[in-house]
Write a protein that binds this DNA or RNA. Structure first.
Lengths: 214, 214
DNA sequence: GTAATGTTTTACCAACCGGTCAAATTATCA
DNA sequence: TGATAATTTGACCGGTTGGTAAAACATTAC
């Protein structure tokens, strides 16, 4: 008996902590490469090195694992945009935003793919977050960009599509990694590809937005 | 008896033609929003308005449907890049490439998502196409871009990352449609969003690549 | 019209899926 | 140490899944 399944808000054993972490890590592997429906508990359990019932002792359902992963991911995912500072100057802010997003694609590709999978399938599990907090945050930062434009610090452009294009270009290196590697070939697909991408994107956006050339 | 299942290269009945088309259309719906593993034959059959065994009379396996869709899609998908003309001038070529890719995101979002799903999951079914024809095509066009740069018609930049960034920004409007709509809100998420995107992207790339301002 | 061919349906199967249960095992702590 | 609570396991269940078999039904060609 004893129903500590997935923690009762308090009192988490060392084992609980450890196993839950292992499950989430394994689940991130599986969900990010198969989507929610395509993933099976057995796959996750095997990747985590435990039996299915044992896994279900820590997370009651497949959805519970998925939900936990999405919550964690969303937080870190939006952090770089949070950092966007209205008082900073556009060049620094945009340049470092691109850089941070690119670093996230490099260091957390599975999280990026988890998110991509979720959105691709219509965001059934994070509809509220998308329509609520995420939209609010983007609205806020779009306003910041607009003030920069009004102050003549930035070429006139649609701030929403600017944000979309930064998301798209940076996340591409995580979500379409297989394609990027294949196209670049063995010589150029090493870790250096992120440096190359950073150089290209910074130039593109700096010049494209009428900021001093890169 | 009679084993015409999925066509014996010749002699296709009107009914065959018609039903296969209906199946592929339904399958595109399902695969593009659930991925290969997440899709079920039953879902496809229901969407196509026929029984599962009936569907399996036309396509022997789930994989056969998926393979057919991917083949068709890849052809149309790469066509715009094919059109990239070395003798044209960079401004026209790049501008119309962006425009065509954006139109494809608008008119064939399901195809875009089918492709995105496949790449996200590691491209298990189109590995060969990616490493072969696709890479070759990109290599060829990257060379075209390089000659433009050498001729001083374009700012110096990495042609591969240029192509990636066009792919990423345009396909974003199909693959991340749910997010785009949510962020833009009801007022600005109408069909006009593609016009806005086109305007923004053309400006970004034209200026970013050192071509006359948009 | 009838025979051959093409199409659809009903019934079915074995494997897999998410999840439960109760018993067995292990860790914790007084 | 022993009692108690935490963890792990194997056996199991009902529903779903990809796919088959065979017969009923429809269409076409002669």
């Amino acid at each position: 008996m004893t129903v500590p399944r997935a923690a009762k808000t308090q009192r988490r054993t060392r084992i609980q902590e450890e196993k839950e972490e292992r499950i989430l890590d394994a689940a991130l592997d599986v969900f990010s490469s198969s989507g929610f429906r395509g993933a099976t508990i057995d796959q996750i359990a095997e990747a985590a090195g435990m039996s299915k019932p044992n896994l279900l002792y820590y997370f009651r359902t497949k959805e519970a694992i998925h939900r936990t992963l999405l919550e964690r991911m969303l937080f870190t995912w939006l952090e770089p945009l949070q950092a966007f500072d209205a008082d900073g100057d556009p060049e620094t802010e945009i340049r470092s935003y691109i850089r941070r997003k690119l670093e996230m694609s490099r260091d957390f590709p599975r999280e990026s793919r988890l998110f991509a999978n979720e959105i691709l399938q219509g965001a059934p599990h994070i509809e509220d977050e998308i329509n609520g907090p995420l939209k609010a945050l983007v609205d806020e930062k779009a306003e910041v960009i607009r003030t920069w434009i009004k102050a003549g610090k930035l070429a006139r452009c649609d701030p929403y599509h600017l944000i979309f294009s930064i998301w798209a270009t940076t996340q591409h290196y995580a979500d379409f990694d297989v394609q990027v590697r294949a196209v670049l070939g063995e010589n150029r697909a090493g870790e250096g590809r992120f440096e190359d991408a950073a150089r290209f994107l910074e130039q593109l956006f700096m010049r494209g937005l009428g900021i001093s050339a890169a």
